[in-house]
């Protein structure tokens, strides 16, 4: 997993609540047996009309947000299924950071396993960013995981909380399974005790 610390990028404002994993990656794209190549299917049914042409109204098709690494959305982002294809699609498309007031639990967990930084900010703060991201587009954000800050191009800085364990995972790009192998003795002891 690629370590992540500082990200500087235009933000993509996706002003919707309850963005579910069926929208992030629709089920017709879940049949692949690889982890890669899902980016081109991200938000497929919002990005494309049923005849395959681009939906110009959708934010990902707006040229001002091309090459954006930061997605900003509203409450309860990633609700629905456990499919890790959702964060795989987000990462493969090019997003490294997702900012929202709240995330669904399984999606939130899945982000940390893939080097995506999910940032929870207060609702007012996210709404402020969404508003700047829409009215002053393209609007650039600087994210610093070490410092736990998001800074707008007007200099306003927002602090965020993150679980220290997951922060270290992301900063170092650790392989969690390799870390867990260090607890082999405890796992074996547990198994012996409960056999």
């Amino acid at each position: 997993m690629k370590p992540i610390n500082e990200v500087r990028s235009v933000m993509t404002p996706l002003n919707r609540k309850n963005v579910d994993t069926d929208q992030i990656i629709s089920k017709e794209f879940l049949k692949r047996i690889e982890r890669t190549g899902f980016g081109k299917y991200l938000f497929h049914h919002w990005r494309f009309h049923s005849d395959g042409t681009e939906n110009k109204e959708f934010v990902l098709n707006d040229a001002r947000f091309k090459d954006s690494k930061v997605l900003v959305a509203h409450d309860n982002f990633g609700c629905g299924s456990s499919r890790e294809h959702a964060p795989w699609a987000i990462l493969d498309y090019g997003f490294e950071v997702v900012i929202a007031p709240s995330f669904a639990d399984i999606f939130h967990n899945n982000c940390f396993k893939n080097g995506i930084l999910p940032i929870r900010l207060r609702v007012e703060e996210v709404e402020e960013l969404l508003s700047k991201g829409e009215s002053a587009a393209p609007y650039t954000l600087e994210i610093n995981l070490e410092q736990q800050t998001v800074t707008g191009e007007d200099g306003k800085t927002y602090g965020f909380d993150i679980d220290p364990y997951y922060k270290q995972m992301l900063l170092n790009g650790w392989d969690e399974i390799a870390l867990t192998f260090q607890y082999e003795e405890q796992i074996a002891a547990y198994e012996k005790q409960h056999a």
């Binding site: 982890r35 456990s82 890790e84 399984i106 396993k113 364990y165 399974i177 607890y183 796992i187």
Partner: peptide
């Protein structure tokens, strides 16, 4: 509870989850 594929791999190799 439901888990992602990275956690599926973690459980397969360690029978545990953080």
């Amino acid at each position: 509870f439901g888990i992602g594929t990275s956690e599926v791999e973690h459980v397969l190799s360690t029978q545990t989850l953080w």
